[in-house]
Structure formats: C-alpha cells, structure tokens
C-alpha cells in the first residue's frame, strides 16, 4: 500500500512507534497536544468508537496503547484523526489543600527570585492538569507551572519523602501519595494525603490523567 502524500505535507502531529506485537507508542510534539490526544482517546473509548485497548498510558509526550489486536491498523486510524485542543474545563477537577511549609521553600524562592513566603501564593495561583502517573501508584505528574517556575531536582535525593509532600521538579508539580525516597524540591504538605491513593475505593487514584488540579492554601495548624 502506498499512501498518497500531498506535495507539501504539513509537519506530522503524531508519530506511531511500534512497541511489540500488541502495542503502539504514539508520540506527540508537546505536552499540550499529548493531553489533547489522550482526551480524544478517552472520548472515543466512551463513545465506543475505539477498538478494544487494554491500557491507555499517557507519558510526558507520548500515549501508550497496550493490549491492541492490530497495532498497525490502529496506527493508520489515529493518523487521520482531527484532534481538538483541550479547553480549560475539560476533565474532572479536584482541589488539594496545602500548607506551604516544605524544607526546600527557601531554595525554590531563590530560584524563582521571590521571597520564601511568596512561593505558596504563586504555586497556588496556577491551574494544573495531571499529565500522567508513574513512579508509585497514584503519583501524578502535574503540568501547569509556567517555564520561569521550573526548577531542577535536588542534587542529592532524600532517602525518605513523607506522604503528602508537595513537590516540584522540572516542569512538574506533584504530591507524594506515600512515603518514598525522592529527589524533588519540597515546598509544602497536604495535611491529609489519604485520599490520593485508596485501592479500596471505586476510583483508587484521586489524580488520574486529565484531571484538573488546584492547590488551595491552608494555614498552619500550629
């Protein structure tokens, strides 16, 4: 089969890469279009127009479609989709209460060029979206920080980051659902992190890909 190419083909918006006999890794140019493609997949699955896919796993600039009967056929299909950009009110929304009391507040403030007590107000002023999950069950990578607020990971990871720690690394913000080692910059604490991950609940993870998130500042209990 030889596909017809127009004389001046536009930049392809997605590239489908093989990932074994039953999966497809679809790569997109940036996080926004990845989120839009993921939302389109969920819409089509809900509408019953997507062939059976066992797992839809977004990444930073990819979506993995795993457990697919015919990956080549699906690759041809998605290449032809018109994908609308996400709008601000797509997806579920959750508010996460935060005390801005993290041990790296001063370091982050220095990188942002603001006073330490301004970090919380700034961090809580942006709206975020869960781009993807990974690292641990219920750990969501949240996009939404403007580029001037991106900070590197700590040079030396901590052997233990407590559950509920609100953290920054690269373009992402996150809340640790449970205590683990971690290299992110800690700026705050979610007072009750229990709801982030509860496998006994119908929806085990609070932060699923596509969910919109706002951080709501709460005062110190002390």
């Amino acid at each position: 089969m030889t596909p017809e190419h127009p004389a001046r083909s536009p930049e392809p918006l997605l590239e489908a890469r093989p990932a074994g006999r039953h999966a497809l890794l679809v790569e997109l140019p940036d996080a926004e279009r990845t989120a839009a493609f993921h939302a389109e997949l969920l819409r089509r699955r809900a509408a019953g127009t997507l062939p059976p896919v066992a797992e839809i796993v977004p990444g930073a600039r990819t979506v993995l479609l795993d457990g697919v009967r015919d990956p080549d056929a699906l690759a041809r299909r998605v290449a032809g989709w018109e994908i609308p950009p996400n709008t601000a009110d797509d997806g579920d929304a959750v508010d996460l209460p935060v005390r801005y009391d993290g041990p790296d507040l001063a370091d982050v403030a220095a990188r942002w060029g603001v006073a330490p007590d301004e970090v919380g107000a700034l961090h809580a002023s942006y709206t975020y979206r869960v781009a993807f999950c990974g690292f641990a069950p219920g750990f969501g990578y949240l996009t939404g920080l403007p580029p001037e607020r991106h900070v590197p990971r700590r040079a030396t990871p901590r052997t233990r980051v407590p559950a509920g720690a609100v953290a920054l690394a690269g373009p992402y913000s996150a809340v640790y659902p449970r205590a683990t080692p971690g290299g992110w910059q800690l700026i705050g604490t979610m007072p009750d992190p229990g709801p982030l991950w509860d496998p006994a609940r119908e929806r085990a993870a609070l932060l699923t890909p596509g969910t919109r998130v706002r951080f709501v500042r709460v005062e110190d209990a002390a």
């Binding site: 066992a54 797992e55 839809i56 796993v57 977004p58 993995l64 795993d66 457990g67 993807f132 999950c133 990974g134 690292f135 641990a136 069950p137 219920g138 750990f139 085990a204 993870a205 699923t208 890909p209």
Partner: peptide, 9 residues
C-alpha cells in the same frame, strides 16, 4: 492487575 497502568500500578 492489568488495566491500571495509567495510575502507575
């Protein structure tokens, strides 16, 4: 427990 990879499981 397949089907939960998108939650990091």
């Amino acid at each position: 427990r397949p089907g939960h990879a998108h939650l990091g499981v």
